[in-house]
Design a protein around this nucleic acid. Structure first.
Lengths: 362, 362
DNA sequence: TTGAAAGCGCTAACAG
DNA sequence: CTGTTAGCGCTTTCAA
């Protein structure tokens, strides 16, 4: 128990060479059964586990894929009370959780494990760099890794960027998967206008620098234009964090504005479900009926969206699939298609019509 | 771009020794600034990323912690339609997702990354073994790794078992964290009996071999005994998978039984939230009012439990904390407390009183 | 089917 | 502050 056993120990104990021990673990069939059993027995007795590091070093591969995602919550900020209270989080968390799930499953299918790390600051000794050195390929959620790091890393191993538009000019040699944000919002908007006959729309967006929120806004605008509705340059409101609280506030403000200056909107479109759900609460408090008085829509398709009353009409993002596709892409890059042109996938989204827009079924 | 650059390349290019290159990445402050910048520049130009494998091999540590969790869904079984329909899953998934989250955060706090893998079959070349060889320590969800493998692995690195009781006799040298299942169910039952005056209780459990479900049943029995209620040897019903569908079926069956043979129960206790939620639906269909006609309780505290109507009274399991504690334990084992006695943590749970038991607040 | 020997790319003393 | 020198534990030809 003092020193962890190595191939040498196992070899000695079972009277074979280290090469044979190695073979027992890599290609068991290439070793005579009796020999193999002797080796395995010795390994068991010694408590031998092959060192992944040594294997990786010698074989130049790790059998691990990586994922870097944004660090959403400060690990130290959260008190126990806050944690208990933050059931709200659960829905939010699912964003990266789903990707993790998707990647894990696809990775497993291909015999890979998954290494995950929330992004930290960059720099030589960042977690990112550490991860990069320990995987055969990895996926990066938009804007979680400094461009410069990505540039260096991607020279050494395949990298696929997830969600968000292809941001940086210098990273156009990377594979990239995104979700059809604009398409989804456009189609959703079209639905409100054409199928429900709504015409006084209000759109609540996110930060200008949030590519997803921005793409959704653009989709909204396109639909407005196509429908001959007035087209604004800016969302009616923007929210920093796109939380429920902000959504509630936005709903209130839109209504207050209307009280002061004209008819209220007959539909509020939010750039994500969280805000839409917050708005639902705010409207309920004011006695405004959804969808009778006003339609409300979200974006994301988080589980919560199905459960609130009225159930939220939204656009479902295939996050799990995003994770799976990412792995497929990486695996391909690690195989035959090393040198293929950069891929650019756009995953289709689907409008989920529920009660909050006036559609019948829940 | 042909060969991936190594320390040697960087050293040569920047006119220093490999040792200095190494230092730049490990202890930047021990290198003169000018030298450091020269090295970093060379590294950038070359696209150099330190090999985690080589580092790990040389330093005998990986900076990675691992987690093995059960493989809940067959990766190939799921059609796209099923996936879309399986919103139900979301709640379920949170079980391991939450642990992952907790571990990831705690790990990051300590400078570790997290390697995750759903358990596969055992054997020399299993994913588990692969993972074990690539981490400094790891956490295992109950019954996901064959005892024998665990035994071998735990000789080489710290292992902490999560949830479920300390199963195997031979694994009593491992650290272990569980959740106070029995306590929670006992307290919840006590609440129903003493605070709501309910006396005709029915308990729907899980498989006999599910330690969690079993512990909950035991807690239930203890409370019954303490309250002077009849104590059954077995749950009134057992469910295989503890799904919503099974919960609904169980509620129906309990009521049917009562129709045939006596007064219906005035409370149904389920071994998890999923079943309780299913029961809620079934009861609604039958026109049975909750909590007026009958109280319903769950266990787990999944997000859904808060959202259903009536909101579900349940017992919250601190899964995230479980993950965090696991990391803390591992980190300690990797530090000074290598040889300390095996730890056995029991995380307290909390009863969440909501509408479904008759408590006022949602 | 098995063994011998040469690295894989880095860290870690130890010198200087 | 920087360089030299050994390995770390395995995989991998190449022979036997």
């Amino acid at each position: 128990m003092s020193t962890t056993p190595t191939v040498y120990d196992v070899a000695e104990r079972s009277g074979v060479s280290i090469a044979t021990v190695s073979r027992v673990y890599r290609t068991p069939d290439s070793v005579r059964e009796k020999t193999r059993e002797r080796v395995l027995a010795a390994a068991r007795e010694l408590g031998y586990v092959p060192s992944g590091n040594a294997r990786g070093l010698a074989s130049r591969s790790t059998g691990v894929l990586g994922l870097c995602f944004p660090d959403l919550s400060d690990p130290d900020t959260e008190t126990e009370a806050a944690a208990a209270d933050a059931d709200d989080d659960h829905a939010f968390m699912l964003y990266s959780d789903q990707i993790i799930r998707g990647m894990e499953r696809a990775a497993r299918r291909h015999g890979y494990a998954l290494l995950i790390a929330a992004s930290l600051k960059g720099g030589p000794e960042s977690l990112v760099a550490k991860v990069a050195g320990r995987v055969d390929g990895f996926a990066v959620l938009s804007r979680t890794v400094p461009t410069e790091d990505l540039d260096v890393i991607s020279r050494r191993l395949p990298v696929v960027m997830l969600a968000g538009p292809r941001e940086n000019d210098e990273l156009d040699h990377l594979d990239h998967i995104e979700v059809a944000n604009a398409d989804g919002q456009r189609e959703l908007t079209r639905h409100l206008v054409e199928d429900h006959g709504l015409r006084r729309l209000a759109f609540v967006g996110g930060e200008e620098r949030s590519p997803d929120a921005q793409a959704r806004f653009l989709g909204y605008r396109e639909a407005c234009r196509a429908a001959g509705l007035p087209v604004r340059e800016e969302p009616d409101l923007r929210a920093e964090m796109m939380t429920q609280a902000e959504g509630a506030r936005a709903a209130d403000e839109l209504l207050d504005r209307a009280d002061a200056a004209g008819p209220p909107p007959d539909a509020m479109l939010f750039a994500n479900d969280q805000m839409a759900i917050g708005a639902l609460h705010a409207l309920e408090r004011r006695g405004v009926r959804v969808p009778d008085d006003i339609a409300v829509t979200g974006f994301d398709g988080i589980p919560l969206s199905r459960l609130v009353r009225p159930a939220l009409t939204t656009v479902r993002q295939p996050m799990r699939q995003l994770g799976e596709e990412a792995v497929e892409l990486l695996v391909r890059r690690l195989g035959a298609e090393r040198e293929r042109e950069p891929v650019d996938l756009m995953l289709p989204v689907s409008v989920v019509r529920r009660a909050s827009c006036g559609c019948g079924r829940e």
